[in-house]
C-alpha cells in the first residue's frame, strides 16, 4: 500500500472584519492508494475547508499555518509539496482535476446551465489528455456509460436541467473521473439525493474505486454512509480532528467523548422508540472557539482546570489509531 497524500499540521486562518478566525487547526491525516478516508463532522467543523486547501482553492483572505505540510505523490512518482505552490502555478493547475478530482454536494450548482453535459466533460478531458475533439467525445460517451447513464449517446447533448438529481450526480462523477485522477475528493456527494438513489451512487463509487484503484476522501456528516464506504475515518469537531483510525474500530469502540456522543445520538433502525441521547448544548460558532479542548463546553467527562485550559495532544491508544483527549495519557491509556 503506498501513501498518496499526507497532510500534517494543516492550519487555516481567515482574515475577517472581526479579526482572524481559525476554522481548521493542526489537522493531520493521510490517504493511501486504493483506500477511502471518511471525514465526518457536523456543520462548521472544517471538513470542506480542509479539502479545498488541498487543491489551493481557498479565497485570498485565507492563509495557511507556518508548519503546514501537504505532500502528494503524483502519478509519475514525484512528490509535490502543495503548501509551497502558488495558487496560479502550472503545477497546481495540473494537480486540480488531473491528479485530484472533486465532486460536490449540489450537482446542479456545479454544472454550467448554458453548456451541454458533453461540452463540459469534453472540456475536462481535453485539458488533461491529448485528444482530438472527436476522440474526446467518444471517450466522454464511454465515461457516461461507465457511471451507469443509460443511452449515453443521447444524454451527452442534454443540459444539466434535463437530467434528474441522481443522473446529474453520476454525470458529475463522470466529469471528475474523465481526467483520470489518482485521488478523488467527494464533498457530501449523496447528501442531496434520495436514499434509493444514494444507494445506487454509493455502489457506483465503490465499484469505480475498486476498478481504478483511486484513493478517496469522502466528506459526510452521515455516520451510516461512513460505515459503509470508508476504510479509515477522521472525526472533526470545530476544526480539529478529535479521533482517527480504521472506520470499523472507531465506530465499534469510539475513544473520544464526541465520537461516542455522535454515535449515541444517531437514531437506530433496529431498536425503535428508545429515547435519543443528544449531546448537550450547541455547537460553538467558529469565531468563538472555546479555549483548551474545543469540545469541553459540551463534554460530560471534562476535567475541570485541564480541558478548558490546555489543548490536548494527539495520543495513540492502539496502533493505527489516534485520539485528542485529556482522558488518555501519553501512552494512550485511559486515565482512571
Amino acid at each position: 500500500m503506498s501513501r498518496l497524500l499526507s497532510v500534517e499540521n494543516l492550519t487555516i486562518s481567515f482574515r475577517t472584519d472581526e479579526g482572524t478566525i481559525t476554522p481548521v487547526q493542526d489537522v493531520t491525516f493521510a490517504v493511501d492508494k486504493g483506500r477511502t478516508l471518511g471525514l465526518v463532522g457536523e456543520s462548521g467543523s472544517g471538513k470542506s475547508v480542509s479539502t479545498k486547501a488541498l487543491m489551493r482553492l481557498l479565497p485570498r483572505t485565507a492563509s495557511l499555518g507556518a508548519d503546514t505540510k501537504m505532500h502528494y505523490t503524483a502519478k509519475d512518482g514525484q512528490v509535490m509539496r502543495i503548501e509551497t505552490l502558488s495558487d496560479r502555478s502550472r503545477e497546481i493547475r495540473a494537480l486540480r482535476g488531473g491528479e485530484m478530482g472533486m465532486i460536490f454536494q449540489e450537482p446542479m450548482a456545479s454544472f454550467s446551465p448554458v453548456y451541454t453535459i458533453g461540452n463540459q466533460i469534453i472540456e475536462a478531458i481535453r485539458l488533461h489528455r491529448p485528444m482530438s475533439k472527436r476522440e474526446a467525445r467518444a471517450f466522454a460517451i464511454d465515461m457516461l456509460d461507465k457511471v451507469g447513464i443509460s443511452n449515453a449517446g443521447a444524454r451527452i447533448d442534454q443540459y444539466a436541467h434535463e437530467l434528474s438529481g441522481g443522473m446529474r450526480q453520476r454525470a458529475m462523477i463522470a466529469v471528475a473521473l474523465s481526467a483520470g485522477p489518482a485521488l478523488l475528493i467527494a464533498d457530501e456527494p449523496t447528501t442531496a439525493l434520495d436514499v434509493t438513489i444514494q444507494a445506487q451512487v454509493l455502489d457506483l463509487m465503490r465499484d469505480l474505486q475498486r476498478e481504478l484503484g483511486m484513493g478517496m476522501i469522502f466528506i459526510t456528516h452521515d455516520l451510516g454512509v461512513i460505515a459503509q464506504v470508508a476504510d479509515d475515518v477522521a472525526v472533526m469537531y470545530l476544526g480539529s480532528i478529535v479521533e482517527r483510525g480504521p472506520a470499523r474500530d472507531v465506530i465499534r469502540a469510539p475513544k473520544h467523548p464526541y465520537t461516542q456522543g455522535l454515535l449515541a445520538a444517531l437514531p437506530s433502525l433496529d431498536t425503535l422508540s428508545k429515547r435519543l441521547t443528544p449531546i448537550p448544548g450547541e455547537i460553538p460558532s467558529p469565531n468563538a472557539r472555546p479555549s483548551g479542548c474545543p469540545f469541553h463546553t459540551r463534554c460530560a467527562q471534562k476535567i475541570a482546570g485541564l480541558c478548558d485550559r490546555k489543548i490536548p495532544r494527539e495520543v495513540v491508544p492502539e496502533p493505527g489509531r489516534a485520539v485528542r483527549c485529556w482522558l488518555y495519557d501519553e501512552n494512550g491509556r485511559a486515565v482512571a
Binding site: 436514499v195 454512509v225 465506530i251
Partner: peptide, 25 residues
C-alpha cells in the same frame, strides 16, 4: 422493503446490500 434496505446503517458489520431499483422515480 427496498427503501429500508437502502439506508446505510452505522454498523460496519451490517450487510449493506441495497435492493437495486431500476431507473429513476
Amino acid at each position: 422493503h427496498a427503501l429500508l434496505s437502502a439506508i446505510p446503517l452505522a454498523d460496519p458489520d451490517a450487510n449493506f446490500a441495497p435492493i437495486r431499483l431500476k431507473g429513476e422515480i
